[in-house]
Amino acid sequence: MDVAIEIMSAICLLIGSFLCISGGVGILRFPDFYTRMHAVGVTDTLGAGMILIGLMLQSQDILIIAKLVMVLLMTLFINPTASHALAKAAIHNGLKPVLGNKECNHTESESSSR
């Protein structure tokens, strides 16, 4: 039983770490601000969630689990709001997204020169 929980927790931590590193690579690799936000989204939702669930499996104390749940809820609750706020501020201040469509080649060439 204990071993099973240990293994599950390890798997959760592993998946979480992998997702976080993927997000970290994404934030460096993606071409512009808006796409980078998607990469951050990966680390903030499932990455953080998996790591916190992995920690929850390791603890026995109900208070600690409660606090971890609180951290998780706050992460899921706050981060989309913060991301939205950020994206909104960016677009209102005239930061143009790089778009994949044909009609927007103009913006793409402009921003790729950065």
Binding site: G23, L86, A89
Partner: peptide, 9 residues
């Protein structure tokens, strides 16, 4: 905004 994003992350 990239910097703010980095701080947030």
């Amino acid at each position: 905004y990239d910097r703010i994003l980095a701080v947030n992350m």
